[in-house]
Simulated assay, not measured.
Amino acid sequence: MMTKAEKTKQYIIEQTAPLFNTKGVAATAISDIMAVTNLAKGSLYVHFSNKDELAYSVVAYNIQLFIDRSGEEVAHFVSAHDKFFAVLDLLSDPLNHPIKGGCPILNFGMEADDTSPVIRDIVNQAIGDIQHFMKALLQKGIDDGEFKPDWDIHTFVVKAFAMLEGGILVSRIAQDNSQMLLLINLMKQEIDAQLL
């Protein structure tokens, strides 16, 4: 059971997660944090020594939300094929991303690549974890006899991940999902081509 201090710390993270993911770390002011939490600056600093420390927690929280949401979608399906398609479908509308503010990996990764080694490392770890999950899912499909055994899933996953993140970026900048839908369709065709 969480202590009162732990509950307050978690509350601060949860309330500020959409704020940081939408505005970015640099553009989020302490006054913004105070406004969404209804806490005084002194109360915030009881739980986090500075804005950066809060940002690290918020980045990890937003990424975990995204991973959990993807896991919930995957859980509705049995085959590796259908599970992978579920993830693609979840991400097919970047203008209505499952996480408020958009993809936290893209948002925080682009902002932190030159400014915050800690956030960059958090995002890099998440990229590795997600790609590992994607590969494990496809490998299970190979092991279960769904996919051709000689499919180079490592190359496919690296390409698919880059296509998804690029599609999210282009869609959000253009405010149009058409290119993302094209990319999703190409990935689905490539997956279907590997079915036995």
Rank of each mutant, 00 (worst) to 15 (best):
M1C: 09
M1N: 12
T3N: 11
A5D: 12
A5Q: 14
E6C: 06
E6G: 10
K9G: 03
K9V: 05
Q10A: 12
Q10F: 06
I13M: 14
T16P: 08
L19A: 06
F20D: 07
N21R: 01
V25S: 07
V25I: 15
A26M: 11
A27I: 00
D32V: 06
I33C: 01
I33Y: 03
M34G: 02
V36A: 05
V36K: 03
T37L: 01
N38A: 11
L39K: 07
V46M: 07
H47T: 01
F48M: 03
F48D: 02
E53S: 08
A55R: 10
S57L: 06
S57H: 15
V58F: 01
V59W: 09
I63Q: 11
Q64Y: 07
Q64N: 15
R69V: 13
E73M: 11
V74G: 02
A75M: 03
A80H: 04
D82Y: 02
D82M: 05
F85I: 15
L88D: 13
D89R: 10
D89Q: 12
L91M: 13
D93M: 07
D93T: 12
D93Y: 10
D93L: 05
L95K: 04
N96Y: 07
K100P: 00
G101P: 00
G101T: 00
G102H: 00
G102V: 00
G102E: 00
C103Q: 08
P104W: 08
I105K: 00
F108H: 08
F108S: 04
M110F: 15
D113R: 13
T115M: 07
I119E: 02
D121H: 10
V123T: 09
V123F: 04
N124A: 13
Q125S: 14
A126F: 01
G128P: 13
D129G: 00
F133Q: 12
F133G: 05
F133I: 05
M134F: 13
K135F: 03
L138C: 02
K140C: 02
K140H: 09
G141H: 02
G141V: 02
I142R: 09
D143A: 11
D143Y: 04
G145L: 07
F147I: 03
F147W: 05
F147V: 00
K148Y: 01
D150E: 14
D150L: 05
D150N: 12
D150K: 11
I153L: 05
I153Q: 03
H154D: 15
F156A: 00
V157L: 07
K159Q: 14
G166L: 11
G166S: 15
G166R: 13
G167I: 10
G167Y: 12
I168C: 06
V170G: 00
R172M: 12
A174G: 02
N177R: 09
Q179H: 10
Q179W: 04
M180D: 00
M180N: 07
L181C: 01
L186R: 12
L186D: 14
M187Y: 03
M187W: 04
E190N: 13
A193R: 13
L196C: 06
L196Y: 12
